[in-house]
Computed example of a mutant assay.
Amino acid sequence: MDLGTAATGEHLVGATVLVPLGACEQHGAHLGLATDSLVARAVCAQVALRLADRGGKRRVVVAPTLEYGASGEHEGFAGTVSIGTEALRLVLVELVRSVRRWCGPVVLVTGHGGNAEAVASATRRLRWEGHDVAWTSCAEPGWDAHAGRAETSLALAVAPRSVRPDRAVAGALDPLPELLPRLRAGGVAAVTPTGVLGDPRGASAAEGREHLAALAARVTAQVLAGDVDEHGRLVRPETAGVPG
């Protein structure tokens, strides 16, 4: 169920709410500024369907996507709009406090890695207040870090009109841990003039659909297990021993 189009009613009381968190930031010349938001939204929609298919015992709604995030590392590129970590943290705290007046568990699903600090901080605060809230991300081990093959494939699967494959070029190919010192000091522009971390060439919608299914299966398993770490982050299935 889409919360943005749902009418007020008892069917919403106690429902699990999935909140997609995105960003407005550069993704090279071949992907749109809203890529992270589109992916997070698609993952949440698929998770809601999977949870609803489990006998209909769990009511699930997908909240409107939070389109702005903490994207300061991308501000060297035109089009990026960042509200910063502290503002995002405050927004999430107030959002969850409000929605928890009528809903059950809240799961924050971020499509942008730069949101993690704000999401973790907000979740720790909210759980301390007694709220049933946790978070997870759309990142997967082995994927290139930003606007590479995996993310481009996902965009081709969920919003093909937002992708311009003819403009796809490789960016920084060094492993992310090796890039982090320069990234932290000067942002993405300090390590790649294209704004890409990885190589988007070879991406396909078919590969994107496989990635989306894998993400949805993993997040569904996380929600069902409900195990969290000290930051309120849902434990990955392979860590928690949950098949996914």
Rank of each mutant, 00 (worst) to 15 (best):
R54K: 13
E238R: 09
A190N: 08
H131A: 07
E75D: 14
G186R: 12
W135K: 03
G232L: 06
A23K: 11
P165K: 00
A150H: 08
G84K: 15
S98H: 06
L154M: 03
A172D: 08
V188N: 00
L180T: 13
L51M: 15
H11L: 12
R97E: 06
L12G: 11
L180M: 15
E210I: 01
G114Y: 02
R201G: 05
V13I: 12
P237E: 07
H211P: 03
V19L: 10
A205K: 03
S204K: 01
R100S: 15
A190G: 07
T16W: 07
I83W: 10
P200Y: 02
A145S: 09
G232A: 05
V191C: 01
R164S: 15
L88H: 11
T65W: 03
P175G: 02
W143R: 06
L126C: 06
E25R: 05
V196D: 14
H146W: 02
V191L: 04
G79H: 11
T16F: 04
G187C: 06
T80A: 08
R164Q: 15
V19T: 12
I83C: 13
V93Q: 03
L12K: 12
A159I: 01
E178P: 11
E67L: 14
V158N: 03
P160A: 04
A216H: 06
P20G: 06
V17P: 06
A157W: 06
A221N: 01
A213L: 07
G111L: 01
G56H: 10
C44Q: 02
G28S: 11
P165R: 02
A63Q: 02
R58A: 08
L154K: 01
D144H: 07
H112K: 00
A63H: 08
L66F: 09
T5Q: 03
A45H: 15
R59V: 11
G232R: 02
L173T: 15
A157P: 12
L95A: 11
A157H: 09
P237H: 09
P141D: 14
A15Q: 04
G76K: 11
V223N: 07
V19K: 05
S98G: 14
R100T: 05
V133P: 10
G32D: 14
A40G: 01
L51P: 08
E94P: 11
P20L: 07
L154Y: 01
W143T: 13
P193V: 03
A147R: 05
S137Q: 10
R89Q: 15
A120K: 13
E117Y: 13
V39D: 00
G28W: 07
V19A: 05
L156Y: 03
P181W: 15
V158T: 01
V235R: 02
E207H: 11
V81I: 14
C44M: 01
A190S: 13
G28Q: 12
N115Y: 05
A139Y: 10
V99D: 09
